[in-house]
Simulated scan of single mutants.
Amino acid sequence: MNWNEIESDLKNKLTKKRFLHTKNVVEAAKHLALKYGGDVEKASLAALLHDCAKYFSNDELLYYAENHHIKIDTVSHNDPQLLHGPVGAVVAKDLYGIVDKEIQDAICYHTTGRKDMTTLDKIIYLADFIEKGRTYPGVEAIRKTALLNLDKATMQAMTNSICHVAQMGSLIHKSTICARNDLIIKEIKKNKNESE
């Protein structure tokens, strides 16, 4: 499918609010890709498709994950909406013909993050977090950091997410903790090397 066909299909499947969010994420992803030397085309396509499985019910996500050999950890079993990323990566491939593994991975990990995130992973994670329609506490600070440092902004977004999920009394996905720790360790090593 080409861009217009994908966009038209998503417009029919997603709620009006979710589709607007998707368009905002595309805009934010393009901006971040230009700023940080990412592939604008890949970032745009990953952003367009990042929520392509968001309209699935919890039961549908679990069923789809089981039938496509997607690992369902304890946290995702208890909060199946976390599976919309991994399921979305499969939907992007099977329904929309996206064979680029980097785009699939960015869709897969846009909610939880992962250790050793690529630039595209960070762009999609962050674009989803800071798109212009987002109004949660702390978003402006993360937007400002996003203009200066992709890794620091991604860490800041993950910290915000972890704190929010903890305050709600919900389970925190270990991939988000691993991703944040990985970024912090890399930052520490970078600072140490620069000071030597």
Rank of each mutant, 00 (worst) to 15 (best):
K144E: 14
V75R: 04
C108N: 12
T112P: 00
N58A: 09
P137R: 10
V40E: 15
T119M: 12
G133F: 13
D151P: 01
L82S: 03
G38N: 02
L82Y: 13
Y136N: 10
N67F: 01
R114E: 08
P137D: 14
I123L: 03
I98F: 10
M117W: 09
Y136W: 14
H68Y: 07
V90L: 06
I124H: 06
A153S: 04
K144M: 08
L32N: 07
A141E: 15
L48R: 04
V99N: 11
F56D: 00
D128M: 07
H69P: 00
A106I: 09
H31N: 09
T74Q: 07
E66D: 09
T112V: 02
E60I: 02
I103M: 03
L95Y: 12
K42M: 14
E140T: 14
A89W: 02
N67E: 12
K93S: 13
D116S: 14
A92E: 13
M117F: 12
L45Q: 08
A47G: 10
F56M: 02
G97D: 09
R114Q: 10
M117C: 15
E131K: 04
L49G: 06
I70L: 08
H50V: 03
D39N: 13
I70C: 01
N149Y: 05
Y96H: 05
E131S: 05
L61C: 01
G88W: 12
A141M: 11
L120P: 02
I142E: 09
I142T: 10
D59Q: 07
I72Q: 07
S44P: 04
G88L: 12
L95M: 09
H84G: 05
L45T: 13
H84P: 03
I124R: 05
S76M: 14
L148Y: 09
D105S: 13
K54F: 06
V87Q: 10
P80N: 10
F129G: 00
I70S: 00
D105V: 01
N58S: 13
T145K: 08
G85L: 07
H84K: 05
G97L: 09
L95I: 15
I103T: 02
T111C: 03
N67P: 02
T135I: 08
E41H: 10
K35F: 09
L148W: 03
G37M: 02
E41I: 07
G88D: 10
V40A: 11
L32D: 07
H69V: 06
L82R: 05
A47T: 02
K93L: 10
D116V: 06
I124W: 06
K115E: 15
L61G: 01
L61A: 03
M117A: 14
D116C: 11
N149G: 04
A46E: 07
V87S: 02
P137Q: 07
E66T: 06
A89Q: 02
Y63C: 02
L120E: 08
Y125P: 04
V90Y: 03
T112H: 02
R134H: 12
R143L: 11
R134L: 13
S57N: 00
P86N: 08
L48S: 08
I103L: 03
N78G: 15
N67G: 03
H31P: 00
I124F: 08
L48Y: 09
T74L: 06
